[in-house]
Design a binder for these strands. Sequence first.
DNA 1: GGCACAATGCTCAGAATGAGCATATATGAG
DNA 2: CTCATATATGCTCATTCTGAGCATTGTGCC
Lengths: 333, 333
Amino acid sequence: MTRAQDGFAVEATGALPNPSAVGLVAVIVAATDGEPRALTVRVPGQATGRETGLPAGPLVPEHPTLERGLRAWVERQTQQRLGYVEQLYTFGDRDRQGDDSGGLHSLSVAYLALVREMRSAALPEASWHNWYAFLPWEDWRAGRPATLDDIEAKLLAWAAGAVDAKIRRRREDRLGLTFGIGGGAWNEERVLERYELLFEAGLIPEAQGQSGEACATDIATTGRPMTFDHRRVLATAIGRLRGKIKYRPVVFELMPPTFTLFQLQRTVEALSGANLHKQNFRRLVAQQGLVEETDEVTSGAAGRPARLVRFRREVLLERPAPGFRLTPSRRSS
Amino acid sequence: MTRAQDGFAVEATGALPNPSAVGLVAVIVAATDGEPRALTVRVPGQATGRETGLPAGPLVPEHPTLERGLRAWVERQTQQRLGYVEQLYTFGDRDRQGDDSGGLHSLSVAYLALVREMRSAALPEASWHNWYAFLPWEDWRAGRPATLDDIEAKLLAWAAGAVDAKIRRRREDRLGLTFGIGGGAWNEERVLERYELLFEAGLIPEAQGQSGEACATDIATTGRPMTFDHRRVLATAIGRLRGKIKYRPVVFELMPPTFTLFQLQRTVEALSGANLHKQNFRRLVAQQGLVEETDEVTSGAAGRPARLVRFRREVLLERPAPGFRLTPSRRSS
DNA sequence: GGCACAATGCTCAGAATGAGCATATATGAG
DNA sequence: CTCATATATGCTCATTCTGAGCATTGTGCC
């Protein structure tokens, strides 16, 4: 162990002291009926109102890669085939993870998985939840969320309560950047930054025992809490996914084999939390060659029947980076 | 530990069995004289030609977050102030990390750090290397890298040698996607995918002992090897950085306090490995308001003196996502 | 002065974007 | 049957963005 503590050492990447407890957390996402859903489980022994968490488990060392371990684990537990899987982030904050695992430093490696809608086989302990139940300020599809009035007021109070002018200025800047308070624009990708800001401002019940202060908000305003730091993980996932759909055709992992363009649009809107201009959305999808027509059309629903399309897998080989640009329509927001 | 192995359990994220060995690896990047450089260290006891590695070390549990731990560790060792720091990826492949750490599953959490050029204080064990020494096919600034002829031939042979037609087809698709072989475009962000493809094709010496086959290439073709899987980490970093500079003003972390637009362009080109159209680059920087003029100009060098500019920090608060679009100029490629 | 070399200003055609109008074809109420 | 309603789909148009290139302006150097 030469210079392991001291020099700018390179030990074998694996041969290190201080073993740590490592876990996996999964954000498993589906989109059903135009709503974005995450798979949650009930965690016994948590404080009231905080029993809902993300599927999490130990690192299983049998598998050659972390991702394959995760796949096997999830697929075995849920009979749910995972499509797209992506590593999200490794969380290792001392004071945000719940407990401390008997002196071991604890890490959790978070993954994002996209699955096709699964109606059958409800899991015994797991259930799907609209992810905006946990982060209600993120859903702008029906216009500016009402909860933001309350949140803004409390955040402004928090900024005003800073100990000195410099910190106050910094806080105000952050309010502008994340929540668009004070003339800034709402950037739908900054999900994590918004959550973290609320956390710091003491508006998130999960922060209890952190700063010690009582939480100044109710669930209606700041959404349903989750176990440990799982809401943070969820926020990370949403932010990442909102970014990704702009330049990679990942939404199709959430769609059934055939679908209409409007269903596709609804799904993109569900993920991004904003409404899109319909005609331009179709033009985009057409231009990029993302889908090909089938010879079927929908029937039964109101309105003119729509043509069913399917994802053109070939685009994965063609364009440099196919995806959607998300320009919110002015109309409905 | 109810259901820890069995159910779809959520234990405390930290309270998990199977402790693992966790390390940190850092890709520390600077840009000096228009060349992209990474900080490397010499690792004793490695096979000849593979003594060069990235700075790596144990996870230090004293710090509240991983990132702060990394900062403290690097800044202490190098007297080098880190500007931008970002978590890259957590590598946990069983068979790619070097050794196995006595039965512990080993992970390494990789970080990317950007630093301002540092000429003074050469570190005792560390040195800066042009990162294209390790990945020579990634540098298109002087036109298509010569090494690609050799690489293409070998990759095509690898694809042709597939056991059945289906696998061959898949391999050919990947050649097109990553290296643009067969009519595809070169996407400068796919650094990792290209490296991994070469690895799988047996063209990377680090793969030795992996598939067992001798390596079919020399350093001139496939670049300088590194310790363990560090070249993979470097490739991850380059790909990520190339993506990031397009939508975030991170290049400025690599620039001195004042600089000319051309120096900025050279830096962006160094990172992205492609040349840009000069006038359009200036237009872009001007439009985005990324810099503000100083009243100084350069002197001494050949050519008309250039105005020195500095980064406008305010943009961090203004635009939704300032950065560069990288459209390679046709002229010089 | 004349040359090499950058910096800087400006133009222009084509593509991409944001917005909206118009029309087609369903369902369901009355 | 007809109308209201809801969606699907085609098309236009002004604006902005992009990629490319021409022209001019300063400097150091021989």
